[in-house]
Design a protein around this nucleic acid. Structure first.
Lengths: 190, 190
DNA sequence: ACTGTTTGCCAACACTTGTTGACAACGGTA
DNA sequence: TACCGTTGTCAACAAGTGTTGGCAAACAGT
């Protein structure tokens, strides 16, 4: 059989270094302020390498903003703990990975990033909600409401950094926000 | 007495046209993508006029992002209608004025705009909350939680434009979100 | 009508951006 | 050794940015 699995290239390390630097810069500065030159400097290579390996700035962002929410199977969660489970999950998912911060910042000004954000929450979040709420008339709306609170939390906590929101302990965030998501997910449709 | 009230100058119309165009561009494109040349073209004047009247791009943004939430006196609102009152107020305040959209977009990438956003919600929102919740230990947190839901709503509805959130009728938004704000404002502290 | 100020446009500056192509060092293969 | 694709650096381009100074026309006060 022909070897379809490409063996490790020597450039893979460079590719990874570029990607890591790109995620950092995009998360910290947003799409337009994060320059290819700055990213290349962080990765200690020449700007032209970024172009060779990712084609363009848009291509680099597309690779750097690849993001999997890794949502659990909501059908396996006790129905009265859905909200709590989700808040906990998102908090943990954000703290370690700055990809979502990058996507969030970029989505504000870059149309492509906004489209990607829409897909992320349409495909992954709405799909997860559909695991236990099988009514197609309400599942999209429930997912949208959850997104509004979750993204608002991320926006105020990691982007704008409103002091009272930043200072809240994770457990306090769970205690306050979980009931909100719970109602959006299982409450009566308005 | 010396005439301190400056009489109308002929350039006031130009100043206003620049400001209007600036708000539109900042709201649609964010801080870095909104170029002075584009704003000047919209206002049908030369880019150099923008500099003369507003000093710099940052000065123009500062003038364009001046924003008053115009929050009502919450002490005069029936305590069980606080949430509903606030959602209604914000929805109305946003639809007609794109200044907050401009501020929201810019705050994602521009440090100065983020600072301004912090001041806006610290001074105006927290102050309004303090009108009826006089406990300084909780008022900041309550205001922060409200901000997280309100800004998340604005972000998903006007910036990212998540379809299910965009399609919700104002009354549906009120019905779903008002209870959330109500609990953040008057619920038990966690 | 003369003067000084205000309002506006034009052309240019210095700089940064994404992007490209030429060319040198390296690495494995024959 | 000679060869060829890979990995990398360097210098440059064309376009666009915020910003500046000079100069003409319109205006207002005398």
């Amino acid at each position: 059989m022909t070897d379809t699995a490409p063996r490790a290239r020597r450039s893979d390390a460079t590719r990874a270094a570029i990607l890591r630097a790109a995620r950092e810069r995009f998360a910290a500065d947003g799409y337009e302020r994060a320059t290819i030159r700055a990213i290349a400097a962080d990765a200690r290579i020449d700007p032209s390498m970024v172009m060779r390996y990712y084609g363009s700035k848009e291509g680099l962002f597309a690779a750097a903003a690849e993001f999997d929410l890794r949502l659990p199977d909501l059908a396996a969660v006790p129905p009265d703990r859905l909200g709590e489970t989700l808040v906990r999950h998102f908090l943990r998912r954000w703290e370690g990975d700055e990809t979502l911060a990058a996507l969030l910042r970029a989505a504000s000004t870059n149309p492509g990033a906004a489209e990607r954000m829409r897909l992320l929450f349409a495909d992954q979040l709405a799909a997860a909600v559909a695991d236990f709420d099988t009514d197609p008339a309400t599942t999209g709306r429930r997912a949208g409401l959850v997104a509004s609170q979750i993204l608002g939390l991320a926006f105020t906590r990691y982007i704008v950094r409103l002091p009272p929101v930043v200072e809240m302990a994770p457990e306090d965030v769970v205690a306050w926000v979980a009931p909100t998501l719970q109602r959006y997910l299982t409450g009566r449709p308005a």
